[in-house]
Amino acid sequence: MAALDRLAVGDYGVPMLIGSFGASAVLLFAAPDSPLSRPRNLLGGHFFSALVGVACAQWLPPFWAVCLCVPTA
């Protein structure tokens, strides 16, 4: 994933690593009847977390953005 990101975007020093997609794939394919793998919960959770991450990156200094975006999401 990081190599594909480097080829597509270039080297900015921060590789794109998305660990939550792996957990979502396990929920979606291994436990499709689980309440956590419903589309509303799965897509809504990713959307809300991405929104929080972008807001933290835009409004906070880099150190605080890194410290606060993951626990807030």
Rank of each mutant, 00 (worst) to 15 (best):
V14G: 02
V54T: 08
S37V: 08
V26Q: 06
A23I: 13
G44N: 10
P35F: 10
F21C: 12
G19R: 11
V52F: 03
A25N: 09
Y12T: 03
C69P: 03
G44K: 11
A50M: 13
P35R: 04
A25F: 14
Y12K: 04
V14P: 00
V70C: 00
C67R: 08
F21M: 14
S20A: 14
I18F: 15
P61S: 12
C67N: 00
V54E: 02
S20G: 10
D33W: 10
F48V: 15
Q58S: 10
L60V: 05
A65H: 01
F21V: 15
G22P: 00
V70D: 02
C67T: 08
H46A: 15
H46D: 02
F63A: 15
W59L: 13
G19P: 12
M16C: 08
S37E: 04
V54N: 03
M16W: 07
A65W: 01
P15Q: 09
H46F: 15
G19N: 11
A30G: 05
D33A: 13
V70F: 04
N41R: 09
L17F: 08
A31E: 11
L27N: 06
L27H: 05
V52W: 01
W59P: 00
S24G: 14
A57Y: 05
G45D: 06
G22L: 13
Y12E: 01
G45Q: 08
G22H: 05
G19W: 11
M16T: 07
A55M: 09
M16G: 00
F29R: 06
L28S: 09
V26C: 09
A30C: 10
G53L: 10
P61C: 04
V14Q: 07
M16E: 12
A55K: 00
R40M: 10
L17S: 08
P62V: 08
L42N: 02
H46S: 11
L51T: 07
F47Y: 08
N41A: 13
F29W: 14
P32M: 05
V66C: 07
Y12L: 09
A50T: 15
L43C: 06
C56S: 04
G45R: 10
D33G: 13
A23N: 06
V66P: 00
P62L: 12
R38H: 09
R40F: 13
L43S: 06
V70A: 07
L51H: 00
Y12I: 05
P61Q: 09
W64S: 02
L42C: 03
W64D: 03
L68C: 07
V70I: 15
V26T: 12
F47G: 06
C56N: 02
V14A: 09
P15M: 09
A55V: 10
A31W: 13
A65N: 03
L17G: 05
P61Y: 06
L17M: 12
N41H: 08
S24L: 14
G44H: 10
V70R: 00
F29G: 04
L42I: 10
P32I: 06
D33T: 11
L28N: 05
M16V: 15
S20T: 14
A23P: 01
I18M: 10
G53C: 09
G45P: 04
G19I: 11
F63M: 12
A55N: 01
S49I: 14
M16Y: 06
V52G: 01
I18G: 02
A23M: 11
V66G: 01
M16D: 08
P61I: 09
G13Y: 05
G53Q: 02
L68N: 03
P62T: 05
R38C: 01
G45T: 07
A65E: 03
L36P: 05
G53S: 07
S20K: 10
